[in-house]
């Protein structure tokens, strides 16, 4: 599903942001990638989305070697990965429904499909009643649900969440985590990048810890924290 082989990324300053990372994430897994700021998490995510090219090594996602995907095919590749951000990144001038429908419109899905899928995914994240609200009328937790709905509406095989609870209080953070767990149970591979160790510990999932660009620990689900 997601395979990184000897992946390194060095920016112009010379210090590697990601240093010889080897990883394998199976289809249907729920994985946390842990690390403090500056650990190389963001660089890793950007490489997974093919926003950045690794300096060396090879990334394979859904059987495709990223280095072999031509520029023109990048949009198609990205349609198979849903992304959720810490700051939600919703369009402020559009309501909940439009924000979610946006994800289907930009991939030129037919209207019929949009009308069917958007209400479905909104009810899945528990926001069917607020489809007309603008993002600023929603709480942080609700905004993140909209973002998750937007990431999921295209039915990607992988959901990549970059600090999804970073801007949320504890109660909302837990709700989002449970939602992600539910999505995972439906078959979607979920990769959550976070530095919130409390959540990571309680969720009892596989945890990959990165420090200064190097994988220092890969703990299987159910194993106890030894670091």
């Amino acid at each position: 599903m997601i395979r990184l082989e000897n992946v390194s990324k060095t920016y112009q300053q010379g210090v590697p942001a990601v240093d010889n990372v080897n990883l394998h994430i199976e289809q249907g897994e729920f994985v946390f990638i842990m690390g403090s700021s500056g650990s190389g998490k963001s660089t890793l995510i950007k490489m997974l989305l093919k926003e950045l090219e690794p300096t060396s090594g090879e990334i394979t996602i859904n059987g495709q070697k990223l280095s072999k995907i031509p520029r023109k095919k990048v949009p198609n590749f990205r349609r198979d990965i849903g992304v959720v951000f810490q700051n939600f990144r919703l369009l402020p001038d559009r309501n909940v429904y439009e924000n979610v429908a946006f994800a289907l419109k930009v991939v030129e899905a037919p209207n019929k499909e949009i009308k069917k899928k958007v209400p479905m995914v909104l009810s899945m994240v528990g926001l069917a009643a607020k489809y007309k609200s603008l993002p600023r009328q929603l709480s942080g937790g609700e905004q993140q649900r909209v973002a998750i709905a937007r990431a999921l509406v295209g039915e990607p095989r992988i959901l990549l969440a970059d600090e999804p609870t970073g801007n949320l209080d504890s109660a909302n953070a837990w709700e989002i985590m449970h939602l992600l767990e539910e999505i995972n149970e439906r078959g979607t591979t979920v990769v959550v990048v976070t530095h919130n160790s409390e959540i990571v510990d309680k969720m009892n999932k596989r945890v990959i810890t990165i420090k200064k660009g190097v994988v220092v620990e890969d703990r299987k689900a159910g194993e106890s924290n030894v670091v």
């Binding site: 989305l49 926003e51 023109k72 949009p75 198609n76 590749f77 990205r78 349609r79 992304v83 990144r89 369009l91 946006f102 994800a103 930009v106 991939v107 030129e108 937007r150 295209g154």
Partner: peptide, 16 residues
């Protein structure tokens, strides 16, 4: 700019 960035991440084609 933000909207364009999101569009690109969601998988919108250049033409679009």
């Amino acid at each position: 700019r933000e909207e364009i960035a999101i569009m690109k991440l969601i998988g919108a084609k250049d033409k679009f």
